[in-house]
Design a protein around this nucleic acid. Structure first.
Lengths: 389, 389
DNA sequence: GCCACTTAATCCACGCTGTTGTTTAACTGG
DNA sequence: CCAGTTAAACAACAGCGTGGATTAAGTGGC
């Protein structure tokens, strides 16, 4: 019972994307995750389209204006039968993940019973391990942050032992009296490169004592909770819901991009996708600390004005959008947050200029609403994904 | 019975990646596809590692030196129980998709019965609709081309009617006396942009009569076979097996990239991913026909020597590899095939120079073994994917 | 105020999935 | 020759979603 629980085959031993068999338990978990995702989406859109609620009710039998979805709607959207939805919902109600929340308007018969997520049925902990700061937060099932804290650290000088002790201490504080079985796990975002699958850090620039550290297992050992690690920029893309083809562009000390393509997080062959800062966009450009010339990062740093810097980022994003046919870009990171309106305006301007047909290819550009918490929240989103598939 | 058959929910009505429920039929098909994929992989690697067969037997209980896999190995690799594999294999034997092919060496007990794909149990038709040529071919389950033909056309001048009649005629010739139930379908690769999901072409440069044509349904109507369409470069990436994170770089009239990331073909929000040719890699570069300046395509065209042109492509590929953390690049298209060794050497040289640590990030670069058939074969691969998941 | 009608959700029996436990098949080695 | 070992199938079973019938809870006409 309880939450999705099928143990994935260990992906370490085999080359990579091994086709993997599924049994009845996996089927059940998959469908439970499907239903949870649909309920979450419905409540999320209900919040957004609260004003345009009238139009929504009209649209193709879709989400009603109210918060929550009915079983009939879930059946239609999932492709499962009403009976199957009934059973699945019943299990989720028993687990406390869903709750009935009033009824919808009748359309001539028995009114639909609306279902919503129970936000505090489970918790996810998100951590951002930065070079100079440690951010920890606790998020509920809807991705709302209920507690967060940021403490100054010195990653390079302190070394793993001291930092991880502090981390464990902060997480304990976060969780307070929350029973462990209600905690889905801990997600840790760290500067790359790293091996996400093995949970091991590679050489962190300027912090040799962290080289090869088994970060995931170290933290899991200290906390006794399921733990995952992720590159910071990649984590960021999970800080909120959004398009199945989107990117989180993280402009902080470095420049990285988190990618969700075809609805799935993309990490690449060695889980180091997103090295966006070292795209060469001008072979005659300034030398970059990576050794090459004309990287986006180097061009950005060499810009003569904030506006020009933002424009450079826009050009790089235009390339990204064209290559991957994205329809949503979320901006984050300290440099962006220091001048959000400027970056928003410039990136939008460049995209409008560069992309062939804006009506055929609209791209939403926004600044991460979670602001400085985006990466840590994305790390929490990583563990939430255990439940939502 | 027979081949995987669950009807996918229509993705047209809903935003995009709708989480979709699965039932027992879907589960069965998924596992059948899993087994077929494992058998295919085993036979493919057996062919490749034929020389290094001795080492293979030693490795982690993996694929034995011979062609074929045993049920025990399938069970281990898929994570399913031996009994489940037994049943699934039995169904696939009944369908004629698998066959028993000898036995492996005994390891002290009953020897394993080896299973192989029956190559001609099903057929896939691949079509490349080019501006000046129509390529059609028939491929078996292993992706081997058993018949192919290329005829000159003039896409712009002839218009859809004449070309599609010719296409139907060629496909009929290809299939000869093959019973329709043994034909998985027809995949059609076309120059983009197009709407892969709807099966509709967008404005094909210089061929206005094709604008908005419902290519998929037109062809399906003429042939009475399941039909899919795909961008040419995207199709190309399916012309062979390979890494779960790879790209097919197609240098022909234009430059495009087909992407497989995380084991899945990536098409993007409007199924137009892969616009690789219009990545800006030099803002001061020559003007491109797309309206911008310094696109890869424009730089390539402006190169003063073939070697320089190949180098330009290499630079662009280096960006691609870094961004997506790819470990395999396949080159194709007429321009590459005109000087394969040059392109291979230059791309490898640039990658070696540009990528930080070649031992940590090895990238395989090759020219598509199917040569001029790569795109059409990839289109056939698209329909083979119906069987292999 | 009744009742036919409609729609939502559940109850019940069922078919089919992969799983568990047991048996048969087929080869090795002392 | 026979104990030991490994592969694969047989038999019984739990649990998944499905299909058909039933109950719950509204609307609307007269």
């Amino acid at each position: 019972m309880s939450s999705p629980s099928s143990t994935p085959p260990d992906r370490a031993t085999l080359p990579a994307a091994i086709p993997s068999g599924a049994n009845l338990a996996a089927l059940r978990d998959h469908n439970a995750a499907t239903v949870l995702t649909l309920v979450r989406a419905a409540t999320a859109t209900a919040a957004v389209t609260a004003t345009a609620a009238d139009r929504a009710t009209q649209a193709t039998g879709g989400t009603s204006g109210r918060a929550g979805v009915s079983r009939v709607e879930l059946a239609r959207q999932s492709g499962l039968t009403a009976q199957a939805i009934s059973k699945i919902v019943q299990r989720l109600l028993d687990d406390g993940l869903l709750a009935e929340a009033g009824r919808g308007a009748s359309t001539g018969g028995k009114p639909r019973t609306l279902l919503t997520l129970v936000p505090d049925a489970r918790w996810a902990v998100g951590v951002q391990l930065g070079r100079d700061a440690l951010t920890v937060l606790r998020a509920d099932l809807t991705g709302r942050v209920v507690a967060d804290r940021q403490v100054a650290i010195d990653l390079a000088a302190w070394g793993p032992g001291r930092v991880l002790d502090l981390l464990a201490e902060q997480v304990s504080w976060l969780l307070g009296a929350v029973p462990p079985e209600r905690v889905l796990g801990v997600g840790i975002a760290s500067p790359g490169p790293l091996d996400q699958r093995a949970g091991v850090l590679h050489q962190v620039t300027g912090a040799p004592s962290w080289d090869g550290l088994a970060l995931r297992d170290e933290v899991a050992g200290r906390l006794g909770l399921p733990t995952l690690i992720e590159k910071d920029s990649t984590a960021g893309v999970l800080s909120g819901l959004g398009s199945p083809d989107r990117a989180f562009v993280h402009l902080d000390r470095g420049l990285g991009a988190g990618l969700v393509l075809g609805g799935a997080v993309q990490r690449g062959a060695r889980t180091n996708a997103g090295e966006f800062g070292h795209q060469t966009i001008d072979p005659d450009g300034p030398r970059c600390r990576c050794g090459n010339s004309g990287c986006v990062e180097a061009l950005w740093a060499a810009a003569r004005s904030p506006r020009e810097a933002a424009g450079v980022l826009g050009e790089a994003i235009a390339n990204l959008v064209r290559l991957l046919d994205l329809d949503e870009i979320v901006l984050g990171g300290r440099e962006v947050l220091a001048a959000p309106d400027l970056y928003l305006a410039e990136v939008r301007r460049v995209l409008a200029a560069r992309l062939p047909d804006p009506t055929w290819q609209p791209v939403t550009v926004s600044v991460a609403p979670s602001g400085p918490n985006a990466v840590a929240l994305g790390a929490a989103g990583l563990v939430l994904a255990r439940l939502f598939g």
